[in-house]
Simulated assay, not measured.
Amino acid sequence: MTPAVVSSLGELLDHVRRQSPLVQCITNYVAMNYAANTLLAAGASPAMVHAAEEAGEFAGVASAVTINIGTLSSPWLDGMRAAAKVANENGKPWVLDPVAHFATAFRRHAVQELLAFKPTVIRGNASEIMALAGDASTGRGVDSGDSVERAETSALVLARRTSSVVAVTGAVDFVTDGHRSARIAGGSEWMPKVTAMGCALTGLVGAFVAVAPATPWEATISALACFSVAGTQAARESSGPGSFAWRFIDTLAALNGDGLQAQAQVTPG
């Protein structure tokens, strides 16, 4: 175990399991099933509610909202705006996953609209975070062409500009609120080979900030550490991305607070 930056890593996982927060996940249809199973394995209650006719109303009863623009369309964007608006107005935590936001004008405009509703956490890969901060990146579609290390300065700038916690995820994750930073190691080389892993992580961050809305930096670190520990454990028995995908869900379901606290690899940034 590395020295703990957040002493309550395991405690927050136990809170998620006890409270089973209702997390509204507006995510892409490629990711829905795996993201929902990830939240269930962690003890949260996922709700894939995205229609504009009900997304805002549902955000009023959800414990947290997560928005992923992976398979963006105008009707889905209407639902995203409605949910983010209600979350912002009611002081509820919400998480933005700006998938490939730099790829098209439609995505760029959509993300700027959503940023106006002040997300609690922004989670993305290095290229997404760099581009969102206004820096040049080498991303292609949903794939990052940049290292997490190269995106750290961009993340700090973006966090200060938006007053959001910014999480850059990759081989070693980086999380900052613009003042404090931490790195989270672990996981598996199979993770980038499984569709929806990043999208599922966004949902998990939503579950953790739901039970700790006053401390989103700590909650985000805890969620990423939980994901990394489960990935490290699942990889030991996996022979490829297919077996890793289901073993990850089983491993996450079996992880408890003590196990997370003991195995998390979190260091100051």
Rank of each mutant, 00 (worst) to 15 (best):
77 L>N: 06
123 R>I: 10
128 E>T: 11
30 V>L: 12
119 P>C: 10
249 I>E: 13
178 G>R: 03
184 I>C: 11
14 D>Q: 07
235 A>N: 13
79 G>E: 05
216 P>E: 11
39 L>N: 06
121 V>Q: 10
192 P>A: 05
254 A>F: 01
7 S>Q: 12
57 E>K: 04
193 K>V: 00
203 G>S: 05
57 E>V: 03
20 S>D: 01
177 D>K: 05
227 F>K: 01
221 I>P: 09
100 A>S: 14
183 R>T: 09
58 F>N: 08
70 G>A: 06
80 M>K: 12
52 A>Q: 05
167 A>F: 03
158 L>S: 14
156 L>S: 05
250 D>Q: 10
116 A>S: 14
118 K>D: 10
84 A>N: 12
40 L>Q: 10
25 C>I: 00
218 E>I: 01
156 L>P: 00
158 L>E: 07
175 V>P: 13
51 A>L: 11
116 A>T: 13
56 G>K: 09
173 D>Q: 03
244 F>Y: 15
203 G>D: 01
242 G>W: 02
218 E>L: 04
53 E>Y: 08
96 L>F: 06
219 A>I: 01
173 D>K: 02
196 A>D: 01
22 L>T: 11
39 L>G: 10
163 S>H: 09
72 L>Q: 10
246 W>A: 07
28 N>Y: 11
90 N>V: 00
176 T>D: 00
72 L>K: 11
41 A>C: 07
150 R>M: 10
60 G>H: 13
128 E>V: 11
77 L>T: 12
27 T>I: 06
96 L>R: 02
27 T>G: 14
254 A>W: 01
112 Q>G: 00
249 I>D: 09
43 G>Q: 04
37 N>W: 09
212 A>T: 02
243 S>T: 14
250 D>N: 13
113 E>T: 13
21 P>E: 08
257 G>S: 04
137 S>W: 04
83 A>L: 07
269 G>K: 06
15 H>V: 10
247 R>K: 15
257 G>Y: 00
209 V>A: 10
13 L>M: 05
